[in-house]
């Protein structure tokens, strides 16, 4: 671990100032500390935000929920309102990591966790994300866990979060205290960047920008599900996951909010897939068509080829589960 300065932030603007020039925020540290030990990340200054007042979960005026960035994954998963109205989020959280990690991990930190790509973690290997221009070791290496959608010639990393996948399906927004002093709200989808030519840039956040909360819109009618497929029963990252909020009215799909984990460099949402489902009577053929659209541009790299047929199977199973018996 490289020597670093430590600053304990007392207020959001203090945090922003401290982070604007070479600082990195730390909250739960469940990912950052590991990466610092490996010197994959070597911040000059850690700005500890754990004393800031961002642990509340409050109802918004329009029936939604404002989740403070420091709310732990455990507290969020166990919140009675979340369990009742946004169960897909609770299930996604509980399918991630372990109880010990969920106790430490925060909402804001979870959104910003780094990829689990093994080549990103190994400093002897080339990695465009860790060391821009060095190449991608994973492209022709062991890439079982890596992405098939949204990749570039420079990077095939996946985003490892479960929580963010559910939030994406729920249409969550991120509240950001900009380093300049403004507070903005951004659809979660717009927080993340695809790798393109700059895989080292993962979000639109500028130095000093601090995620202060996640806003969930009011709950909607429909059934919710989070389905995660992984190599062992617990404590493993998703190979494929699907978060879904689906409603059927008059025998036709009235809502199909879908997001996917394990497939792409960011929690993946494809509006074309949802558009294809809306207004149609649920059927296997329809689900197949949705999968065709989702996976039209999917590209495997050998060891992860299986994710493409697996995603199709899981999407179809989730849609079947959420539309079955609901046609009346």
């Amino acid at each position: 671990m490289r020597p670093f300065d430590y600053h304990r932030a007392t207020a959001p603007d203090d945090a922003a100032r401290a982070a604007a020039s070479g600082g990195t925020f730390i909250a739960g540290g469940t990912n950052l500390v590991d990466l610092m030990k490996l010197e994959v990340m070597a911040p000059e200054r850690l700005v500890d935000i754990t004393r800031l007042d961002m642990r509340g979960i409050e109802e918004t005026g329009d029936g939604g929920l404002r989740i403070g960035a420091l709310v732990s994954n455990t507290d969020l998963a166990n919140d009675a309102r979340v369990r009742r109205d946004w169960p897909v989020l609770s299930r996604a959280l509980l399918s991630g990591a372990t109880q010990q990690l969920r106790n430490k991990a925060t909402t804001g930190g979870n959104l910003l966790q780094r990829t689990r790509c093994l080549y990103f973690y190994d400093r002897a290997m080339p990695c465009n994300k860790r060391e821009p221009g060095s190449g991608c070791g994973a492209m022709e290496g062991f890439n079982r866990i890596l992405a098939v959608l949204g990749t570039s010639d420079h990077c095939i990393a996946t985003h490892p979060s479960d929580m963010a996948v559910a939030m994406m399906a729920l249409g969550a927004e991120v509240e950001i205290a900009r380093a300049g002093g403004n507070t903005e709200r951004l659809p979660l989808d717009d927080l993340y960047l695809l790798p393109g030519d700059t895989p080292e840039r993962e979000t639109v956040l500028a130095p000093g920008d601090l995620i202060t909360a996640v806003i969930l819109p009011a709950p909607v009618a429909g059934r919710q599900s989070y389905r995660k497929v992984r190599d062992r029963a617990s404590y493993a990252f998703a190979l494929v996951s699907v978060a879904a909020v689906v409603a059927v009215e008059d025998g036709k799909v009235a809502r199909a909010d879908l997001a996917f984990g394990g497939l792409a460099p960011k929690p993946w949402r494809d509006k074309d897939v949802e558009a294809a489902l809306l207004g149609q009577p649920p059927s296997e053929a329809l689900f197949d068509k949705a999968a065709d659209i989702l996976l039209a541009k999917a590209q495997g790299h050998g060891a992860n080829d299986f994710k493409i047929p697996l995603a199709r199977r899981v999407l179809s199973a989730v849609l079947t589960e959420l539309t079955e018996g609901a046609a009346a």
């Binding site: 190994d122 062991f142 062992r232």
Partner: peptide
């Protein structure tokens, strides 16, 4: 143990990706 075919190194050299059974298994 997943080896990289190009140089023979162990790619999954941590307990997150070398999957020993957990209690749930």
């Amino acid at each position: 143990l997943a080896f990289d075919d190009r140089d023979g190194h162990v790619a999954n050299h941590n307990l997150a990706e070398y999957h020993i059974p957990v209690n749930a298994d």
